[in-house]
Amino acid sequence: MSMSDASDAEGAIPPVPDNAVLVGERMTGGYGGADILHSCTIAVEKGKIAVVVGPNGAGKSTAMKAVFGMLPLREGSVRLDGRDITRLTPQARVAEGMAFVPQNNNIFPSMTVRENLEMGAFLRRDGIRETMEQVFELFPILREKREQPTGELSGGQRQQVAVGRALMTRPSVLMLDEPTAGVSPIVMDELFDRIIEVARTGISILMVEQNARQALGIADTGYVMVQGRNRFTDTGQALLADPEVRKSFLGG
């Protein structure tokens, strides 16, 4: 595969939709050394699902971290509801209504399901019973196991706990870093169904996925990234139909 031609694809930077809730625009930066992201733009609209896909090492997770403030940006900006949050710490962004589910180590293993959810709502001072009820409705299995330490749960159940924990802050944007990594295809389908349900409640979803075909299937907007740059941007269905995308990224 020859990806180097993407470097001249400056025109591939997608336009930012007017009604976007969360925007990372023309983000450039890296971990101290060379830049990993090069003028990368990601955005998600209210109640919609945006999915970032791409080959290994394309900077998908890095882009996610940049949006969440875990990567210092040299250029570009991040905006939430039109306000510039580029300089905020991740913790401050949580308070502003962003929630993040890391790929690994995304639960408190020695604590019960209920305690995990409580910790998710740590910053909230109002009653959390209602939100917890909503999470249990979304993931009924968690209600059943609510007094069990999460370290004892299966991989798919842990992912549900992780998502549930993030939802406890009642975020306006939920960010998921490869939520289906390491779970079986059946569990993956179920998890995607749940994510669609979450989006229907008005929460915007920004998700990085390795399983590109299935993820684009539920995406309102899809971003294909290569080497830290935007390569293709369109609706999920359009990308799935695009022969070039299919050939290069979806295995034909």
């Binding site: 913790q91 949580v94 308070a95 180590n105 408190f108 293993p109 604590m111 910790m119 924990r165």
Partner: peptide
């Protein structure tokens, strides 16, 4: 249990 996640939870 999980320092990073605790920070993310505020």
């Amino acid at each position: 249990d999980n320092e990073d996640l605790a920070l993310l939870s505020g």
